[in-house]
């Protein structure tokens, strides 16, 4: 079994963050993009808790609560926009959302 080291946690969170970031760039469905955005936030949270644990400082653990609150607010507003848009346009595929142009 691999011992739980700081490096292992940071690498894991960096990989999760990269998956989320690439997902935002590559995926076509808005809801999946939104899940990838949340994955990025959660990856940051994981790194934060790991640093807090191994450095023995408290700030990181406290910051996590703020991030959770902010993410919840973001989801509430974001899903509302997605639902309203789906009602108007009957689609949330990004390549079909191209009405804004010169």
């Amino acid at each position: 079994m691999i011992p739980l080291t700081l490096n292992a946690c940071i690498v894991l969170s960096a990989v999760l963050f990269a998956i989320g970031f690439l997902g935002v760039l590559i995926r076509r469905n808005t809801l999946v993009i939104y899940m990838c955005l949340e994955l990025m936030l959660v990856a940051s949270t994981l790194a934060l808790v790991a640093f807090s644990r191994f450095n023995g400082t408290l700030d990181g653990n406290v910051f996590v609560f703020f991030i959770l609150t902010v993410a919840a607010a973001e989801v509430a507003v974001g899903l509302a926009i997605i639902v309203a848009l789906f009602r108007r346009r009957q689609t949330i595929e990004v390549e079909k959302l191209n009405a804004l142009k010169d």
Binding site: I10, F17, G20, F21, V24, T30, I33, Y34, L37, M40, L41, A43, S44, A47, L48, A50, F51, N55, D59, G60, F63, I67, V70, E74, V77, G78, I81, I82, A84, L85, R88, R89, L97, A99, L100
Partner: peptide
């Protein structure tokens, strides 16, 4: 629908930038 589309585009790019900023903050803190 144009206003909503703009909102969605701002939402995705804004959340993406927040994610980058947050990971940067975490690295600096760590």
């Amino acid at each position: 629908p144009l206003s909503l589309e703009a909102g969605l585009k701002y939402l995705i790019t804004g959340a993406l930038s927040s994610g980058l900023l947050l990971f940067g903050i975490v690295l600096l803190y760590g």
